[in-house]
Amino acid sequence: MSDMSVPKTPRIWQLAERRYRLIGSKCLKCGRVFVGSRKVCPQCGSRELEDVELSRKGKIYSYTVIRASPMEREKYGPYIMAIVELDDGCKLTTEIVDCSPEEIDIGTEVEATFRKIGEESKSGVIYYACKFRPVAKGV
């Protein structure tokens, strides 16, 4: 009855809006910006942080091609995973889409695009988040 189980959905739902809009945390004392929710600034120890929308543009810091996909992506085929350094200085791990590995390199400029990241099952909840794609002229 795998189609009836929803083990990941509550957690995914809690993260959904952060993933949709790339919401991170900003330290009000030292000004550093972090991916995800933080209660304490790991840089200066301040507990004064606020939610901020992260930059939707950045550069590829490093990347790899996943050819042995996890089970839930076995029909998806090879895909590019990268660490992207956003324009506001923080780094996140994300998939690079709309291109082949030959079209990117370290330093390639990328921008956020809203995409499907998975689904619980064929009858289950669909998960969405920001991925990144190379910046094209005008687009």
Partner: peptide, 13 residues
């Protein structure tokens, strides 16, 4: 549509 695109993806973008 790409392998990770559907109508929701198009609407949001």
């Amino acid at each position: 549509k790409g392998r990770d695109e559907d109508q929701v993806v198009i609407a949001v973008n």
